[in-house]
Amino acid sequence: MAGKTTASRILDTMKIPYTLHEYEWDEDDLAASTVADKVGLPVDRLFKTLVLKGDKTGFVLACVPGDKELDLKALAAASRNKSVEMVPVKDLQSVTGYIRGGVSPLGTKKKFPLFIDESIRGLDPVSISAGRRGTQIFVNGDRLAEACEATVCAISK
């Protein structure tokens, strides 16, 4: 299972330091709190990547801390949509190239607008999916936002 992922190769290319952390995953428990425990980080430092579709702009990605929920209204406003809705799990792979529990904000099949909750500012490290279940990337939060060309704003509650 060890080895580079598309997401880690992107960080390599950009010369952004990171570390890969592997853990045993369970199909029935992909919760952020479980993953945070397994990689030894507080859950508010584990950022989950959510895939949504806006009524005007199409697909957007959102990263929020594992202990928070996405504020759909805030994301809609930030992404210039009237509304956004979660993409069904069955459509994740065809849209992003990733499966549930392994969606990374880096290396999606197509580049989508990414919105990261402002709580990421100044955090080092934060954890994101490396693009496969069982592997997390630890990286500086500000550098991650830069690498993803993300809009950093208040989108969690």
Rank of each mutant, 00 (worst) to 15 (best):
A32H: 00
V51M: 02
L70G: 04
D26V: 14
F115I: 04
S127E: 10
D26G: 10
T151Q: 12
R100N: 12
F138P: 08
G141Y: 07
Y98G: 11
M86H: 03
A130C: 09
D29I: 02
C63V: 00
V51H: 00
G122M: 14
C148F: 02
S33R: 14
V95H: 05
I120Y: 00
D55Q: 02
T5S: 15
V35Y: 03
S33N: 15
G131D: 10
G141E: 01
D71Y: 12
S33P: 03
I155H: 00
V103P: 06
F115H: 11
E118H: 14
L123H: 09
I116M: 15
A32V: 01
S156R: 04
V95T: 08
D91F: 00
E24D: 14
V126D: 00
E118R: 14
M86N: 02
P17Y: 12
Y98T: 09
S33Q: 12
V139K: 08
H21N: 15
K68D: 12
I128C: 05
I155E: 00
L70H: 00
A77S: 12
S104T: 13
L92I: 05
T49M: 01
L114N: 05
I16K: 13
T6L: 13
A62R: 02
K157I: 09
C63H: 03
L144S: 07
A77F: 01
L20N: 07
G58K: 02
V95C: 06
L52T: 06
K157W: 04
I120Q: 09
T96W: 00
D67Y: 04
V43C: 15
T57Q: 13
V64N: 05
K38N: 13
S104D: 11
V139I: 15
V103G: 05
R80K: 09
A77I: 07
N140H: 07
A145D: 06
A145N: 04
F115W: 05
T13P: 03
I16R: 10
Y98H: 10
L50C: 02
E149F: 03
K68V: 09
L72R: 09
G101Q: 03
V95I: 15
S119G: 07
I10V: 15
K48T: 12
D142Y: 06
K4M: 11
P125A: 12
K109P: 02
G58P: 07
G97D: 04
K48Q: 04
P88S: 11
G107C: 01
V103I: 15
A78I: 08
L61D: 06
Q93N: 08
V152C: 02
Y23L: 14
S156M: 13
K53H: 08
L114Y: 04
P88E: 09
V60N: 02
M14A: 14
V39G: 08
A76R: 01
V126H: 12
I116K: 00
V64R: 10
R100D: 05
P113D: 14
L11Q: 07
I10E: 13
R9F: 07
T34G: 04
R143A: 11
E146Q: 05
A62G: 05
L41E: 04
G102V: 11
Q93G: 03
S104W: 14
Q136L: 09
D124L: 01
T19Y: 09
S156E: 06
I120G: 08
D26P: 11
L52G: 01
T135V: 15
V35D: 03
A31F: 14
